[in-house]
Simulated scan of single mutants.
Amino acid sequence: MSEYQYYEFLAVDHELDDDQQAELRALSTRADITATRFTNEYHWGDFGGNPMTMMERYFDAHLYFANWGTHSLMIKLPEQFLDLDTAQAYCPTDSVSAWRHDSHVILSLCSDDEEGGGWDETDETRLSELIPIRADLAAGDHRALYLGWLVAAQTELDEDELEPPVPPGLNRLTRSLRALAEFLRIDDDLLTVAAQASGRPRDDGLAEFVKGLPQQEKDALLVRSVTGDPHVTAEVRRRFRRRNAAAPAAGTRTAGELLEAASARRTEREGVATARAAAEALLRGQTRAEARELRLEALAADEENAWRKVAALIENKRPADYDNAVVLLADLKAVSARTGETATFAERFEGLRTEHRRKPSLLERFERSGL
């Protein structure tokens, strides 16, 4: 397999000016660069830039994947929307981390699959699928942070590490959050077990909340919105979330307990699936046996017509018709065993062999079938 790396950066809160685009062009002559986006892919060699530095200086989101199994997502937000202490409570390791740069907090989520097997670049996630998560984080939705913690629990954390607060809605992930869970390779059983301690989000009442804001404040928000402030929506949603729902309680389970519960659920689920598959196979076997029984009864009532059909199939001289003739002959043989006419069957079958002795393909089928 040849090497493949994909880099994508996105500027959300601002556009890149000409000087910034020129600086980025100096890092890569082949990249697709616009006022809001930088994308490049490599089938050999490496990118000369540093993604962390590019996030600090230019961009608000970054996605990277490589065919050897590395997946990485970075998100940058103003610190008034993503508190560093909160982010670090969910991101305590090297692969899942957060840091402050100037007035922003940058979140980095990384997953590695050393096997890297079955890879296809056309199946990989793109940043457009995940970027709505940034707005959710800005609005105070911490489910993406908790997904990052689950990645760390799977790979790096000590078993006695206590989980952070469990945000509501883990069992009702948005499409973007489901894509993130898949991108980070979070075990489905682990996510299901973790979601058992998650409450339901309370998103109803937003319109009433906005109506209840003081008129002067609503006017100010409207002016900010029409003049291009990208944070108005997140600010309103964040305030509503804080007023409408209590902060999630601190987690009470350890990483080890969650992993053990996930393993138990997986064993139970696989056992149920195995039992179901066995029952379905038995039913299919019974159905086939019943169908053959009905077929043999019909043949016994009109054997001569069946022999004529065998002869007609053979005369067609087509491989598929040869196969059908052999199946019908096997049924006729079974009928002869039930009626005590095996000698008659053997005589008629030998006549067929003699009559069609110049058809090697048919004779080969006779031999393989054991007729």
Rank of each mutant, 00 (worst) to 15 (best):
Q80G: 11
V12H: 04
V166A: 00
W99V: 07
N40G: 13
D160G: 06
A194E: 00
Q154I: 05
D113G: 08
Q21K: 10
G271F: 09
A298V: 10
L363N: 02
R37Q: 10
H14R: 07
G205L: 07
R253N: 01
A22Y: 12
A139C: 04
P168A: 11
K218G: 05
S336G: 02
M54S: 03
A275T: 09
H231T: 14
L371A: 09
F38Y: 04
L282Q: 15
A334E: 05
R242S: 15
D18K: 13
L77C: 09
W68S: 10
L352P: 04
K317V: 11
A153L: 04
D188K: 10
E297V: 07
I314Q: 03
L206M: 08
L328Y: 06
G205M: 07
Y58M: 05
T339F: 07
T227S: 06
F38C: 01
W99S: 03
D302N: 12
P78T: 10
G256P: 08
R57T: 09
D160M: 08
V210W: 09
T34D: 04
S176E: 07
L145W: 02
D141C: 08
C110Q: 10
G48Q: 15
A289C: 12
F38H: 05
G118F: 07
L127K: 03
R143E: 09
A277F: 06
G370T: 04
E350G: 11
P167E: 02
A194G: 00
L221C: 12
A249R: 11
A153F: 01
D46F: 12
E355W: 14
A26Y: 01
G140R: 00
V232M: 03
H14L: 03
V210N: 08
L180K: 02
G45N: 01
L258S: 00
T70Y: 06
G251T: 00
R237D: 13
R269H: 06
L294K: 15
I33Q: 08
Q154L: 06
G212S: 05
G45W: 11
P165C: 03
Q216C: 14
G69E: 00
L352A: 01
A289P: 02
S176C: 09
T252H: 08
L332C: 09
A298E: 13
K333P: 10
G285V: 14
W44N: 15
E260L: 07
D112I: 15
E297K: 14
L259T: 15
L313A: 02
V151M: 03
L84S: 05
Y42I: 13
A195S: 05
L282E: 14
T125P: 04
L10E: 05
I33N: 04
R284I: 10
F47W: 03
E41N: 08
V96F: 02
R353V: 15
A11N: 04
G148M: 01
T344C: 11
T192F: 10
H43D: 14
D13A: 15
A179P: 03
L84I: 11
